[in-house]
Design a binder for these strands. Structure first.
Length: 287
DNA sequence: CTTTCTGTTAGAAA
DNA sequence: ATTTCTAACAGAAA
């Protein structure tokens, strides 16, 4: 579920709270959520502490103190990392009734218990997400599978344009390819194409330079705005404090199939399937 | 009731 | 080599 802005929001939220706290216990209710050897996973983390949290694309990377291992975590479609702070424990506030108001709940598969009594919950309704211990070498290999980050300085027009190259693939598929651009998902891909005025079913090699530049700018603007607003809650995304993201109010096409376009106020938003994903666009505003 | 859809992606099949 | 399909899963919506 979460795309780059949502994962980044979670990363920032957790960094404020969980670093340098001794992990007293790692409770695992659903073993398959932990890839690799479960016993080793628990032994390496118990008694240790997280020293940093990084992110590449939609993947979170937790550094451990004095360990050859690093923890990587992917939330996939419905994963959540919730760290109730004392204030929220009092308020009892998880915003989604289906996840019940108190944690852990039936979707909590891993719980980290810290030495100050606080807990970090990994919830995942659809159970696609995972945690895994990786060595430095393995981490290097994983990083090689990720392309440009849209929110860093070297996401330049020159790099982006090189990425487009002479590809003939469909724009939507291009935008979702994590090996090329890391972190875009279904929502921001559709929103970026709309903002650029380009149909998502266009072939990359038919884009004019002007359209390509528009697209580059749209991705940059949308991702930074979405990070600023702490992501988009369309269904059940929540940040580490259990709060919803604010970007949903800015969505132009995603989830608006059949509704009148907010820009031209004439055409209805169409929904088609591209690369196996529901794809939304305005047939009037996007060429 | 059944069918289709869902913010992801690894791996198989074509 | 590259592109498309499917599976992993649970629940909401149609």
């Amino acid at each position: 579920m979460p795309e780059l802005p949502e994962v980044e929001t979670i990363r920032r939220g957790l960094k404020k709270h969980i670093l340098h706290k001794r992990v007293e216990n790692v409770l695992v209710g659903l073993p398959k959520i932990v890839r690799g050897n479960l016993t080793q996973f628990q032994e390496v983390i118990r008694g240790n502490e997280f020293t940093d949290i990084e992110r590449i694309g939609k993947l979170l990377i937790f550094s451990l103190d004095h360990s050859e291992f690093t923890v990587v975590l992917h939330l996939k479609m419905t994963g959540q990392l919730i760290y109730p702070t004392p204030l929220e424990i009092v308020a009892g506030g998880h915003p989604f009734p289906e996840f019940s108001s108190h944690l852990p709940n039936k979707f909590t598969h891993v719980t980290f218990e810290f030495d100050d009594g606080t807990k970090l919950y990994f919830n995942d309704l659809r159970q696609f997400g995972y945690l895994q211990l990786v060595t430095e070498n393995e981490l290097t290999l994983i990083k090689q599978d990720y392309g440009l980050e849209p929110n860093v300085v070297d996401f330049t027009w020159e790099h982006f344009s090189k990425l487009l190259g002479h590809r003939k693939t469909i724009l939507k598929v291009f935008l979702l390819n994590q090996k090329l651009i890391a972190g875009l998902g279904n929502i921001y891909a559709d929103e970026s194409a709309f903002a650029a005025g380009v149909r998502p079913d266009r072939k990359i090699d038919t884009l004019t330079e002007g359209e390509a530049r528009q697209l580059y700018q749209s991705i940059t603007d949308i991702i930074s705005k979405a990070i600023e607003l702490k992501g988009t809650t369309f269904r059940n995304y929540a940040d580490s404090e259990g709060k919803k993201g604010g970007y949903a109010a800015y969505l132009q096409v995603y989830g608006r199939a059949g509704k009148t376009c907010l820009r031209c106020k004439q055409a209805k938003i169409e929904k088609i399937k591209l690369g196996g994903r529901g794809t939304h666009f305005c047939p009037h505003c996007q060429k």
